[in-house]
């Protein structure tokens, strides 16, 4: 009611300008919380990993270290952006933008609750696949433009890795869209509605796909144990060795925004989005947040537990394990859906 009244008043006041203005307001309502979430995800990461290593993590800046992300951001903001002499200047500056833009653009089709979505696109899933794949260009350009062997090696590794895991990820999504018969993310959530609560979610029939998707997601975002692109011990920091200050911060933002994006996607496609796990509790955005936090915690937990993959192992896992498994499961689900045993 309030929103409708606001929209009417706005249309009267601004006329044709209202639509772009109102869209910008809505975009801000999505982007600003994401930036905040990214900042506090870095704190959560340091805290969780600290706790798992029986340390206490940052606790000096603010109570429980709550102002630490702000201090870190401020520090990066004040630092000089050094552009190496041998670098390709335009691309060097362009690369961080290229990494962050798709990571944020992907949020356009993300449904947060019933009807709360910026663009209710019917091919939302395809759009997401396209946007998450574009992120790799930022990394490749950064590695190439830096004119440094470490950066270049990191970029090459990362490109190969993202391309390999994209396929397994795509197949996992194929099963989801087969089951939900829709590429619209809101409809995918609606497809998981039922009177059995969490038993109606796609994670039950598609559990292997869920695992493949989460693990590929970790690989897609270049997170430990798949952080070959960074590989501190062998190639210093990978594609962003030459970056400093805000240019580095943009890569950092992109990585964490992608993590949150993957967590949201996993929750929406396999864990029922904003639907409540118990049929007698109301559906709400809180459930989605809870699921996303759980997936993000898994990301941090993986990082605290597993040692980094060797490069050939990484490629073996992607090509020789995940892709065959996903293809087989696509066939299994296709056949299963034709039988009377399919209840989802």
């Amino acid at each position: 009611m309030m929103l409708q009244a606001l929209e009417l008043a706005g249309q009267g006041f601004f006329g044709a300008l209202w639509l772009p203005l109102w869209t910008i307001v809505k975009i801000m309502c999505i982007v600003l919380p994401i930036m905040g979430a990214v900042a506090y995800l870095t704190l959560a990461e340091r805290k969780v990993i600290g706790y798992m290593q029986i340390r206490i993590g940052p606790n000096r800046v603010g109570y429980f270290g709550l102002l630490q992300p702000i201090a870190d951001g401020l520090k990066l903001f004040m630092k000089e952006i050094i552009i190496p002499t041998g670098s390709s200047k335009f691309l060097f500056v362009f690369a961080p933008i290229m990494a962050l833009a798709p990571a944020l653009a992907a949020w356009a089709v993300m449904p947060f609750a019933e009807g709360v979505v910026l663009a209710n696109v019917n091919a939302g899933l395809l759009y997401l696949l396209a946007m998450t794949s574009l992120g790799v260009y930022g990394i490749i350009i950064a590695g190439w433009a830096s004119n440094s062997k470490y950066a270049f090696l990191g970029a090459v590794r990362s490109a190969a890795q993202i391309v390999s895991y994209e396929i397994a990820m795509g197949f996992a999504l194929v099963t989801v869209l087969m089951v939900s018969q829709s590429m619209n993310l809101s409809d995918i959530v609606h497809g998981q509605q039922g009177n059995l609560g969490l038993l109606n979610w796609y994670v039950i029939p598609l559990f292997p796909m869920f695992l493949v998707y989460v693990i590929s997601g970790v690989a897609e975002t270049n997170r430990a144990p798949f952080d070959m692109a960074e590989g501190e011990s062998e190639i210093v920091a990978g594609f962003h060795v030459e970056y400093s200050g805000m240019a580095f911060a943009l890569f950092f933002l992109a990585e964490y925004a992608n993590m949150i994006l993957i967590a949201f996607l996993t929750s929406i496609m396999f864990l029922g989005g904003w639907l409540s796990p118990l049929p007698f509790l109301p559906d709400s955005f809180i459930w989605l947040l809870g699921k996303v936090s759980f997936i993000l915690f898994l990301f941090l937990w993986f990082r605290a537990t597993f040692p980094r993959y060797r490069y050939d192992q990484l490629m073996r896992l992607g090509w020789k394990v995940f892709i065959p498994i996903t293809i087989i499961w696509v066939i299994v689900v296709a056949v299963w859906m034709q039988t009377s045993l399919w209840v989802w």
């Binding site: 969780v48 706790y51 798992m52 290593q53 029986i54 340390r55 206490i56 937990w301 605290a304 537990t305």
Partner: peptide
């Protein structure tokens, strides 16, 4: 294992 250590007493 790491999950158990998450709740362990911190030695810092």
């Amino acid at each position: 294992l790491t999950g158990r250590y998450f709740f362990a007493r911190k030695i810092t």
